[in-house]
Each structure stands twice: as structure tokens, then as C-alpha cells.
Design a protein around this nucleic acid. Structure first.
Length: 601
RNA sequence: GCGCCGGUAGCUCAGGCGGAUAGAGCAUCGGAUUUCUAAUCCGACGGUCGCAGGUUCGAGUCCUGCCCGGCGCGCCA
């Protein structure tokens, strides 16, 4: 029997303040807002309520006096020191060490297998969520432009899963379209054996293949004609062409999944071709709802608030004048499929900022035709572009696109240099063997790339910079991974099994650095909740960095405390438990970001 | 032209619903080492939050106008 999860500190304090307001002010309880915030400056305590200023104004009472009355009515001694009123009417709250220690002591030991939840309960109302992510075009190699969608999509999927939701990670791959005619025609020419042994098809460099096909297409009218015929044959369902197409897609997806595997990202491929039998239904649905009109031969849906360059109404085109469908049609079909067949309650599109208008139109159309009722949540998680160090679009020196696998290769090489350099100069870690160094380099490299991406605010562009992301100082993956490895080393050195530390190991918090670390640890639940509701991974990276800093100070020989050789034994165990909780929190946080840890570094 | 996003310290970036003296990292400078992993820690320096108005007890945050940069705007996706 597990006891019911306790309210978060933030919610608990908020409730207490709200109760005090009701006691002091003549107003209904449901109109009370405690306005409880985290204090931004330690001098003011841990939390503050800003309710008195607004309320005082409304009720015609001096804010300061009202704050005094609310503070006087507060029953909060089990959580905080006596509240203090300051400034124009802030009510400042400071948590008591005993409360913090007691809350941390409740955290159950890590489970032998599965994700360590650190005692955090899942959401009360689980949903089915589709995360639309990565979505490369199969005609080309995965390039750096796919990194953000893949990494962010994986992270929000992990966050939502941790919160108890059922997540479908859908890779909406572009496996259909006119350019496939050219590719398939070229494939038949260059590798005629593809029909006999489709499973043997290997295209080592998709990029070069595409470029060669395009070159021939542009140079040779006969080939261009053949390409166009191939598109028609593919759409018609011609068996031979279908087989070539299938072989090409399989081979192309193999390339993609090599990279996904390296990134540790799992997702389900669902090509645009999957929806092609459902496209006509989309048109029908809009027609029968009276929402579709034909304009210049194309079938269009006109939505309020969208205008063209000339100020005229901007349609969402769902069928071209030549009878073909376009991506709006496919996206609508996919949305409908996710709602009606996958049973989704929500779709999160991890798609770049430039597609904002398209998604707004998609959402508006889906609402209008009734596929997405009000209770259904449609989220465009829009991310900015990854720029080169000079602030221009990320390209190779020759101006080409950078393949994602090349980027990851370089990351590993650079991380290896960071790890090896130190082994040579420092001496102390020189005993790492080649296999260990290799493993550390890979983990640090991937972690650095992902962490740097996730630590930026989602919507803004960011500059890619190797030195910053691989630095051992600052808000970086290497710093956090080092902090984690260091703590794990403490456990080994102390000759203790962290997992054996039970709830019975009491926690005492006497030193300022201990208390500060403990309060950070206690924040985890509120932070994760906030991060998950807002889908903002950078709030989680900031928290983990703060936590690591708090740990480093706690463990500092001058500003912190002794741990392994602390006396008496109960104090030693208390501090070791803080170490363990820090490591577990770091591991969980990094895990939710999609980053692995190393036990030594 | 219309719309969206951005402009915050020398550089890279954060800044819940409007709250106290606008934060962090890097860089620079100064301190701490008989190493529980110093790959660390502590401190200092550094700002007209693009500009100008407005709203109010209070504006980096909300409103209006303007300047600069990026992106989007019917048959590509």
C-alpha cells in the first residue's frame, strides 16, 4: 500500500494562503487567487504571495495592512518560519528545514528496474497523445534540420509518458510525391536488379543519388518524360513500380533509423502514402459540410483571418486544379486518422516556426469540419532554426546541407578529444581504457548536442557552437554528466550501496549548503509539472543546472560540508542520502531529456 | 503591402499570470588547493531591456506608433 501522494509544496502553500485570505476578506473562496510565486531572490525567502497589492486596491484597504492581516491569519507553522511582510505588501515565506527534510525523507528507494519516479505520482487524467515529430523526406538523407524536431519530439514524448499519458511518436515521413517518379525511374536505370531482389538494394549515399537523378532529369528530356510516367504509374498502383518504390523507401528508412538508433530515439514510421486512400474522403467531408468551394479549378477551404499578399482571402487548398492532392490534404487525413482511429485526445506537432500559418489553417479547418472538438487539444510546438556559429543558416563550408550523421560523428570526435586531453594532462583519469573512453565520448557527445538544443527557448533560433556545448563549465551536458559521475564515485568511495539507503535514513539539514541543495531537490515535482504542461524543456535544463551547482557548493571543501568522512555516522548517512537523491534527480531529469549518464568521467 | 517571430551585459542566452535592486554562462580580473573527482568553488567588473508615447500602486513583460533583422503569404512539402 502506497500512501496517497502529498500535495506539492507550491500547491500546499497556495491553499494555505487562500484560506487565510478567505478568513480576512469578505469574498467567495472561488474568487481567491493567492498569487503564490517562487521568490526570485533568496533574501526574500523561498516563496512569496503577491495577493495583497491587487486585493487591497480592490477592497480599498492599504496593501501593507492587508498583507499583515493575511499573514496573521496564516496557519503555516508546520511548513514555514513566521511569514514576513515586506515592500508594498509582499508576504514572504521561508520553508523550515524540518519540513524540507521530512518531505525528502518520504521519497522511496529507487526501484530495481524501470524508471525511478522519485515518489512522483502520474497525472490524474491520462490522455492519448500523438507527437508528430522528425518527419523527414525519404528522397534525401536526414540532415541537421531534422535534429530539433527529433530531439524535442523525443523529449516531450518522454515528459508526457512520465506524466502517465499514452504517447504515439509518429514519424510523418514524406514517401510520396512527384519527386519519387524521378528517383524510381533513375533507380530502375542504375540498378535494374532492384525488381528481382528488392531486399538487396543498398544506396550508400542518398544525397548523391538524388543529385544524380536530378541532373539527369534536367539534362535528358526523355528521362524527364519517363519520370513523369513513373509518377502516374506509382499513383495508379502499378505493381512493378510499387515494388521499386517499396524497396527505395525501405532502404531510405534504414538510413534514418541508423541515426535514430544512435540518438536513442524510437518512433513509428507512418508515411504520407498511408493516407492516400483516405484523401478522397477528406474532400467529400468538406464538401458535405458545405466548407469546400472550387476556385480557379482547385478545391479550397476558406477560413476566417487568412489573407494573401494582395489582401484577398487565402484558401487552404485541398485539391489542386489537376486533381492531385497536396500536403494540406494529407495532413487533414492524418489528423482525422489520429483522432478517430488512434483515439487521440491531443496532437502535438513538433514542427518549425515557418510552418505556423499552415498549422493554424490545419487546426482551424479541423475544428470547422468537426474532427477536433473543443476538448481536443491541438498544439503546434514551434521551434526556431539552428544557425551556424556566424548566425547564418547552418551549412557546410561549400554551402551544402550538413548530414545529421556527419554532425554526430564530429560531436563524438570532439568529445573524445575533450575526454582524452584530460586523461593525458590530469593523469588521474589516465587509467580509462580505450573502450571506456569511447563510451564516455559517445555519451558526452550526444548529450551535449541534445542538451544544447533543449536548453534554448523553443521558439527562438540558436547558434550552433561546438565549444559552448562541449564546455565542462556552464549550463552544459558535460557539466551535468560530470556532476552525476562525481556523485556516483562518492558512493563507491564511501563503500555504500546508494540503493540500500532506505526511508529510515533520516535527513538533517543544518549547513546552509545542505539546506539549499535540499530545497532544490524538493522542487523537482513542481518543475516537472510546469515543464510538462508548458512543454518547455529548457526550464528542465535550467533546473538541472541549478541543482548541479547547488550540489557542487554542497560538496565544496570550503563552502560545503564533509560527506564521506562526516561524523557522526547518522550525519554521514544523511549527507550520503542527499548525494543519492541528487544523482537520482539528475539521472531522471537527463533521462527525460533523452540523455544517458556515465558512472565515471 | 499584410502577417508571424525576434532585438535584454563585450559574446551566447534565460526571464510562469505585470511585482521588490533585470538574471545565468562564457570572456576579463581577483581569491580558495595537506584533491571525500579543483573537469570544482567563492567574489568583482559589466545594462538607457531597439526607439517614442500610453495604461497603473508597479512595465523587459500589456496597448499604440516607429526603426532594424529573420521568416511566411494558391495549385512544392
Amino acid at each position: 500500500m502506497t500512501p496517497p501522494p502529498m500535495k506539492s509544496t507550491l500547491v500546499e502553500l497556495s491553499d494555505r494562503v487562500a484560506a487565510a485570505i478567505v478568513e480576512v476578506c469578505p469574498m467567495p473562496a472561488d474568487q481567491v487567487d493567492a498569487q503564490l510565486r517562487r521568490a526570485q531572490d533568496e533574501r526574500f525567502g523561498d516563496y512569496q504571495s503577491n495577493c495583497a497589492m491587487g486585493l487591497g486596491k480592490r477592497l480599498g484597504i492599504a496593501p501593507r495592512a492587508l498583507a499583515d492581516r493575511i499573514a496573521g491569519a496564516l496557519t503555516i507553522a508546520d511548513l514555514c518560519d513566521p511569514p514576513e511582510v515586506a515592500g508594498p505588501g509582499f508576504i514572504n515565506l521561508r520553508l523550515r528545514a524540518e519540513y524540507v527534510a521530512a518531505r525528502l525523507a518520504e521519497i522511496p528507494p529507487a526501484p530495481a528496474a524501470g524508471t525511478d519516479r522519485l515518489g512522483l505520482a502520474p497525472a490524474e487524467s491520462p490522455q492519448v497523445v500523438v507527437v508528430d515529430m522528425s518527419s523527414p523526406n525519404l528522397a534525401k538523407e536526414l540532415h541537421v534540420g531534422h535534429l530539433r524536431s527529433t530531439v524535442i519530439g523525443d523529449c516531450v514524448s518522454r515528459l508526457l509518458e512520465f506524466a502517465g499519458h499514452t504517447v504515439h511518436r509518429v514519424n510523418h515521413v514524406g514517401d510520396w510525391g512527384t519527386q519519387f517518379g524521378m528517383l524510381l525511374a533513375y533507380l530502375r536505370r542504375t540498378q535494374p536488379s532492384v525488381l528481382e531482389r528488392p531486399e538487396a538494394l543498398r544506396l550508400d549515399n542518398l544525397e548523391e543519388f538524388y543529385i544524380a537523378a536530378k541532373a539527369l532529369f534536367d539534362a535528358d528530356p526523355a528521362f524527364a518524360a519517363e519520370s513523369r510516367e513513373t509518377v502516374v504509374a506509382l499513383q495508379r498502383g502499378d505493381a512493378d513500380v510499387r515494388a521499386v518504390w517499396q524497396a527505395f523507401c525501405t532502404e531510405s528508412l534504414r538510413h534514418c533509423h541508423e541515426v535514430y538508433d544512435r540518438l536513442g530515439v524510437r518512433l513509428t514510421d507512418r508515411g504520407e502514402s498511408f493516407y492516400r486512400d483516405r484523401l478522397a474522403e477528406v474532400i467529400d467531408a468538406f464538401h458535405s459540410a458545405g466548407l469546400a468551394q472550387v476556385s480557379d479549378g482547385a478545391t479550397c477551404v476558406f477560413l476566417d483571418g487568412f489573407t494573401t499578399r494582395d489582401g484577398g482571402p487565402l484558401p487552404m487548398m485541398i485539391r489542386k486544379s489537376d486533381g492531385g492532392y497536396n500536403y494540406a490534404t494529407t495532413d487533414l487525413a492524418a489528423l482525422r486518422h489520429r483522432v478517430h482511429e488512434l483515439g487521440a485526445d491531443r496532437i502535438v506537432y513538433v514542427v518549425g516556426v515557418p510552418q505556423k500559418q499552415h498549422l493554424e489553417m490545419l487546426f482551424a479547418a479541423a475544428r470547422k469540419v468537426g474532427w477536433a472538438p473543443d476538448a481536443f487539444t491541438l498544439t503546434h510546438l514551434a521551434f526556431g532554426s539552428m544557425l551556424g556559429p556566424d548566425g547564418t543558416p547552418f551549412k557546410t563550408r561549400t554551402g551544402g546541407t550538413v548530414k545529421l550523421r556527419d554532425l554526430l560523428d564530429e560531436a563524438v570526435e570532439r568529445a573524445r578529444r575533450v575526454v582524452e586531453n584530460d586523461a593525458e594532462s590530469g593523469g588521474r583519469r589516465a587509467d580509462f581504457d580505450a573502450v571506456t573512453i569511447d563510451r564516455i565520448a559517445r555519451t558526452v557527445a550526444l548529450g551535449a548536442v541534445k542538451y544544447y538544443d533543449l536548453s534554448h527557448a523553443m521558439g527562438s533560433d540558436y547558434r550552433f557552437d561546438w565549444n559552448t556545448m562541449l564546455a565542462l563549465e556552464g549550463n552544459t551536458a558535460p557539466y551535468l554528466l560530470y556532476a552525476y559521475a562525481r556523485i556516483r564515485s562518492i558512493g563507491r568511495k564511501a563503500g555504500i550501496q546508494f540503493d540500500a539507503l532506505s526511508r529510515e535514513t533520516a535527513i538533517t539539514l543544518s549547513h546552509p549548503s545542505e539546506l539549499r541543495l535540499a530545497k532544490k531537490l524538493l522542487d523537482l515535482g513542481d518543475v516537472l509539472k510546469h515543464v510538462t504542461v508548458e512543454l518547455r524543456p529548457n526550464l528542465l535544463t535550467d533546473y538541472l543546472y541549478d541543482l548541479s551547482k547547488a550540489f557542487s557548493t554542497f560538496y565544496d571543501r570550503q563552502h560545503g560540508v564533509r560527506v564521506i568522512d562526516a561524523e557522526p555516522p547518522a550525519l554521514r548517512l544523511s549527507r550520503l542520502r542527499l548525494c543519492d537523491l541528487t544523482a537520482r534527480t539528475l539521472k531522471l531529469g537527463l533521462h527525460l531529456l533523452g540523455i544517458d549518464t556515465v558512472e565515471q568521467m
